[in-house]
């Protein structure tokens, strides 16, 4: 097929659970790749996205790199989609928002049970943590939202087939879950 629909995906402050759930479309993936090609995505290892039609974002933003990646997606995707609870409201990572960052780091790297060679990682390569985890609609404009922790494979399928076939995407009651 000449012009395939270009899809990019990424996981920011997520657990890759949404990506795993996407893969649960199983053999329907073969139908999908007839009309879709993947650009930047953990599925392809392409490093930067260019000229994409659809960008799927899993996870909220918890560090400076997340913000850069999110902006790159917004600049290069016609349609940007918040996928899953964490992208939509910060999700479980945002439960740290009530604890000062220093306390989080101390607990994880200095005082926590079983920590060996205690030190706070400070390599120049590491992105700096934001003081709070924020949902992605606070950073860039988001066109569609797929709730769920994770959204089921059928949610991905319904959404993508709606878009590909030129319908306004919609989720019926059975596909809307926040858990």
């Amino acid at each position: 097929m000449a012009n395939k629909i270009r899809v990019a995906t990424t996981s920011l402050a997520g657990c890759f659970g949404c990506h795993m759930s996407f893969l649960d479309i199983d053999e329907r993936m073969l139908q999908l790749v007839e009309v879709v090609e993947f650009d930047r995505s953990p599925l392809t290892d392409i490093e930067h996205c260019t000229n994409c039609d659809i960008g799927l974002i899993e996870g909220g933003v918890c560090n400076s790199e997340n913000v850069h990646v999110l902006r790159e997606f917004r600049n290069n995707c016609k349609i940007l989609v918040a996928v899953g609870a964490c992208a939509i409201n910060g999700g479980l990572p945002a439960m740290r928002n009530h604890i000062p960052l220093e306390e989080c780091l101390n607990e994880a790297y200095l005082d926590g049970i079983g920590v060996e060679n205690p030190q706070i990682p400070s390599d120049i390569e590491l992105p700096l943590l934001l003081n709070q985890v924020r949902p992605i609609h606070e950073v860039v404009k988001i066109d569609y939202f797929l709730p769920g922790c994770p959204p089921s494979a059928d949610v991905f399928w319904k959404f993508l087939t709606d878009l590909i076939e030129g319908r306004e995407p919609s989720l019926p009651y059975e596909l809307v879950h926040y858990d």
């Binding site: 949902p135 609609h137 797929l146 009651y173």
Partner: peptide, 12 residues
């Protein structure tokens, strides 16, 4: 209500 997003910034 088919609420799919939070629309507003989060208060936390």
């Amino acid at each position: 209500l088919n609420m799919l997003d939070n629309h507003f910034p989060l208060f936390y």
